[in-house]
Amino acid sequence: MGCYHSKRTKKTPGYEEPTVLAAETPFTVSEVEALYELFKKLSSSVIDDGLIHKEELQLALFRNKNKRNLFADRIFDLFDVKRNGVIEFGEFVRSLGVFHPYAPVEDKIHCTANLLSDYMIYGKLVSLNEKRRLKEMVMALLHESDLLLSDDFVETIVDKTFRDADLKGDGKIDPDEWKEFVSKNPSLIKNMTLPHLKDITLAFPSFVSKTEVED
C-alpha cells in the first residue's frame, strides 16, 4: 500500500488528471493512464525530468537521439502546443487524441494540413501555397530516402499537386479545397490513425488503474 501511495503522489511537472484529459479526448480514463506509462518511459529516456524533449522524441521515432529530421521537427511542434521546447503530459495526450482511430476525420484532415504547412498556423492553410517550401520538403524527403529525382521533375510534381488541389485556381489552397483534396487522396491521412492507440492499455498496463480496481 505504501508503494501504491508513493506511486500516485509522485507526478511529473505538467501532469493532468486522466479524468480531465479523457473528457477532452477520444481516450478513456484507463487509456490515459496507460498513456502516462508510455509518457514516463519516453520522458525519461535521455533527461529524466518528466518532460519529453526533442531528442527524446527523435530517439523514440528513429532510435537515434541525434538524427535531425524535418518531419520529426514538425511532429514535435504539433505536440509542443505551448512552444516552450518540451512536451508535457497534457500536450502529449491531447495531441495524440487526433491519432486515435475514433477521432473525427475532420480533425485528422485539419491536423494533416498543419503538419504539411510551414508555419503551423492552426486552422489556416495560408502557407500551403508556397510551392518553393513544398519543393524543399519533397527534396529533403527524397534525400533522406536516397532517391534521386531531377530538380525539374520534382518541380513538375509540385506544380501538378498544386493544380490538382487549388480547385479555384486562385493560387492558394483553402480548408475546403484541402478537404476535397484529401477525400480524393485518402492516403494523405493514413498516418493520422494509429491502431496502437486502441490497444494502449494492453501495451502499457497502468499500475494505478489496476490498483484502483482492486480497491
Binding site: 508510455l38 521515432l61 513544398l134 510534381i157
Partner: peptide, 26 residues
C-alpha cells in the same frame, strides 16, 4: 515523357518521419 502521377503532399505525408507508430514499440 510519362504523365506525372505522384502527389507531393502524399509523398510527404506517408514518409517515415511522420509515422508515430514507433513511439509504441517497447
Amino acid at each position: 515523357m510519362a504523365p506525372v502521377t505522384m502527389n507531393a503532399f502524399e509523398l510527404i505525408s506517408t514518409s517515415q518521419g511522420l509515422n508515430l507508430s514507433s513511439l509504441f514499440e517497447k
